[in-house]
Design a protein around this nucleic acid. Structure first.
Lengths: 173, 173
DNA sequence: TTCAATGCAAATCTTTTGCAATGGG
DNA sequence: CCCATTGCAAAAGATTTGCATTGAA
């Protein structure tokens, strides 16, 4: 689910993110370390909604001495810096997202294949603002997740229909 | 946050919920027990977004012998029966909601006082459906949570403003 | 009588923390 | 040099599970 990429484009993005992180680190009077550098670079080279375990696995390929604690601590710093967002989709473990965090977006989660799609709609955002206003509520942030079945490459909706038909056939005859 | 009520109306609702639960239990070939009955009755007598700990506390007032394990197990059955919904608002512990689950609704969570408000808007629902359709996605369920500051009885927005002003005054002079 | 349910404690899983050793500024 | 950071292991907090005992059907 969380793959690693290597292109010039990615290199550039990783460098930009890392220097933004260093700026944050320094602004707080904290220290730049080999471990933090490794974790940040590996993180931004990954794509998707990354769990701590997934990140640690990749980090260990670069430096096997780095452990859970440092990864957790660095992720917290990344979240504090605003470069990364923490999300929870209900399976009890945090996931971190940093690649496409520039613009806010919402999520569609496929219950069949586990894929997570991102989307954004201005009307939806506006409507939420309007509703909040009507209720004297000031929104700081929000979270919208649609859980269902996607019609992706492998066509989960198709598979689902086939399975249902098969089950019906089995019980019916 | 989770209070207990006693009115004829509530009695009736609790009885209805309990018999629905018994029906589910029996349909699955499971057994009705004193403990399950207690937990279900106490749960539906409570209001709000109930944590396991809150529920256990109330349950123990009725039967102190009942422990965490049984409460967890019964809540899972309640969720499986469709009478109760599990929610997670990001503080790392599950909350259960059963009282007003008849119609779907979304949530506004006040970051100041912790209160959780429920709301529902058909246009919002329709817009989500439309977006999903455009993306060939079939929604089974969704979750929308607005995090911010409420303007409730104690006026969190007012308190927030005062605090900011105070801080400004302190640093400014 | 039979097998699910209970209650306890132990185990699990994710995340955090204490602390001695390390290393950046 | 000073103090933040690391790495390990232990702790913490929420939830699950193993198992002997209890109790519904």
């Amino acid at each position: 689910m969380a793959s690693v990429e290597n292109t010039q484009e990615v290199d550039q993005l990783v460098r930009a993110k890392e220097s933004a992180f260093l700026e944050f680190i320094q602004s707080k009077g904290l220290k730049t370390t080999r471990q933090r550098s490794t974790i940040v670079q590996v993180f931004f080279r990954m794509r998707g909604h990354i769990s701590v375990e997934e990140l640690l696995r990749e980090v260990k390929l670069v430096n096997p001495k780095i452990g859970y604690a440092t990864v957790y601590r660095t992720l917290h710093l990344l979240v504090a810096s605003g470069l990364v967002e923490e999300r929870r989709f209900g399976d009890g473990l945090a996931r971190y997202e940093g690649r496409s965090e520039v613009e806010h977006h919402d999520h569609m989660i496929c219950l069949e294949c586990g894929q997570i799609f991102e989307f954004f709609n201005p009307r939806l955002e506006a409507l939420q603002e309007k509703l909040a206003e009507e209720n004297n509520f000031k929104i700081y942030r929000h979270r919208l997740e649609l859980y269902g079945i996607c019609k992706d490459v492998e066509s989960c909706q198709h598979k689902k229909e086939m399975a249902a038909r098969k089950a019906h056939k089995a019980t019916g005859g």
